[in-house]
Amino acid sequence: MITFSSTHLIYLIEAARWTVLLSVLAFIGGGAFGLVLALGRVSQHKWLRWLSAAYIQIIQGTPLLVVLFLAYFGLSILGLDIPPIIAAGLSLTLYTSAFLGEIWRGCILSVPKTQWEASNCIGLSRMQQYRHVILPQAARIAIPPTVGFMVQIIKNTSITSIIGFVELARAGQIVNNSTFEPFITFVFVAIIYFAMCYPLSLASRHFERKLNVGN
């Protein structure tokens, strides 16, 4: 009988690099698209507001696992023989963008109305208002919840193991299949996730306290 050993642990840690990579991809993709959604949510055009709201509602009302399946099978319909990381990255991007879009919308709205009025008075265009006045202030407020949401992203990458993408959770299953020690294996998997997520949780709380003190 093979027991859980340091080789397995190293294998898990190496697989965790894919978790990190996938998280970064999701954050970049989801962040870019999320910003568009956030701006869409507060746009002056009714249909833009409506469209981005509908998108956010739909994604937030669907389990990530189902989004993942749709991305996975949808891409294969297109006849593309694509590696799982594409479907994984795509679904996490869609998912992340909806949540970040909603979080950032709140941050934009929490910038006082007088800032709009004041910057309007000095003759800035709407784009310039966003660029120079609104977004810099919203960004400050956005830091704590955004860092907090990174934890959700990292945890959610585990779901991509289901379509066979070998990241940390999938590596855990593989190790378990050879060691038959599910408890130890998955506890170690959990510990590695914790080691990645907890510092971000702490950072998020730290930034939040700092922001509250500042105000």
Partner: peptide
């Protein structure tokens, strides 16, 4: 809060 739900499920069911 800092570990994935999927892993929690595995620990309960398999572990």
């Amino acid at each position: 809060r800092n570990t994935p739900f999927l892993v929690q499920v595995f620990i309960v069911y398999f572990g």
